[in-house]
């Protein structure tokens, strides 16, 4: 049962990291153009380096 003392905090921490990542995606407006994003992945422009 001592295992729980590690596992519960770890699971909460990992979940929290996911939540923070989600906040960032909302804040940086990554849900504004779902159709466009699904198409942009097909374009090979900026494949080598991100757009400046």
């Amino acid at each position: 049962m001592e295992m729980l003392a590690y596992l519960i905090p770890i699971s909460l921490f990992l979940g929290g990291v996911g939540l923070l990542a989600f906040f960032w995606t909302v804040k940086s407006r990554q849900y504004e153009d779902p159709d466009g994003d699904s198409q942009r992945i097909l374009s090979d422009e900026w494949d080598d380096a991100p757009r400046p």
């Binding site: 940086s28 407006r29 990554q30 942009r40 900026w46 757009r51 400046p52």
Partner: peptide, 10 residues
Amino acid sequence: AAISACPACS
């Protein structure tokens, strides 16, 4: 941020 394609900018 919305205009540049690079998420790192934001």
